[in-house]
């Protein structure tokens, strides 16, 4: 008889708070249910208040792993992107969120982890070590990521240059990167504002990019970042032309 193989959750040996703040966290039944309920509520809000429009849905992935990237100009951004995913994929997807904003204490960590399925990343001195956990997650097929390669919200609505960490995640691995561009979140909730205005939000989803052939080296990473930034800027151009 063949031996059974067990694959414990990657987070079993962490204490409760450590687990909430860990990129090794794996969601269980209750969390998954809460992610689904939260997403249904978010879709209703974004649809009714911001008349959310999604262009290019056919470019969305059909299975995990994947990385969804976009411009970052508002607190609404990750909410918009996860709402655009089909529910089946949404529950497997984690927005990568700033650890110094969304995981500062037990309460914020709990809310970010349980309702959003968010994973923290420390922005000060992001080490390759911190990115390794995220890459392992993707390579093992444990879900998709939503992240903003600019590394911070734009203060004036103009896109910032992408940071190279994205390259560490996907170079040389079979992980599609889906470029997106959002138009409207900045008008709805710019940096420094708390109450959203009812501005219309449009998401454009571009064709998936593959970086399987790129070497997992600094040159490879730079190439990944260049291609991704170009793809998102291209979508921004489409948006400006109204295409």
């Amino acid at each position: 008889m063949d031996k059974w193989t067990y694959k414990p959750a990657a987070d079993t040996q962490l204490q409760p708070l450590e687990r909430l703040q860990s990129t090794r966290r794996e969601a269980g039944l209750v969390s998954v249910g809460l992610h689904a309920v939260t997403t249904v509520g978010l879709r209703a809000y974004l649809g009714a208040y911001h008349r959310l429009r999604v262009i290019g849905r056919e470019n969305l992935p059909r299975q995990t792993p994947f990385v969804l990237i976009a411009n970052h100009e508002s607190m609404l951004d990750s909410l918009v992107l996860i709402s655009a995913l089909p529910l089946r994929l949404r529950i497997e997807t984690s927005p990568v969120a700033a650890g110094d904003v969304f995981f500062t204490n037990a309460v914020s960590s709990f809310l970010s982890a349980v309702f959003m399925n968010a994973l923290p990343i420390r922005r000060k001195g992001v080490t390759t070590h911190a990115l390794e956990d995220l890459r392992a997650r993707l390579v093992e097929g444990r879900g998709g990521l939503v992240l903003f390669p600019e590394g911070m919200r734009s203060r004036d609505g103009k896109m910032l240059p992408f940071k190279s960490g994205l390259g560490n995640l996907v170079a040389g691995a079979r992980i599609p990167v889906i470029p997106c561009f959002m138009d409207g979140p900045y008008r709805a909730l710019p940096f420094g504002c708390v109450v959203p205005r009812p501005a219309r939000i449009t998401v454009r989803i571009g064709a998936p990019l593959s970086f399987e052939a790129q070497p997992n080296t600094r040159e490879g990473w730079n190439e990944v970042v260049r291609a991704c930034e170009g793809a998102v800027r291209g979508l921004a151009g489409d948006a400006a032309r109204g295409g």
Binding site: Y6, K7, P8, A9, D11, T12, E26, G28, L29
Partner: peptide, 8 residues
């Protein structure tokens, strides 16, 4: 379930 992987 988490230790055996059954939770998936």
């Amino acid at each position: 379930a988490r230790a055996t992987g059954l939770f998936r």
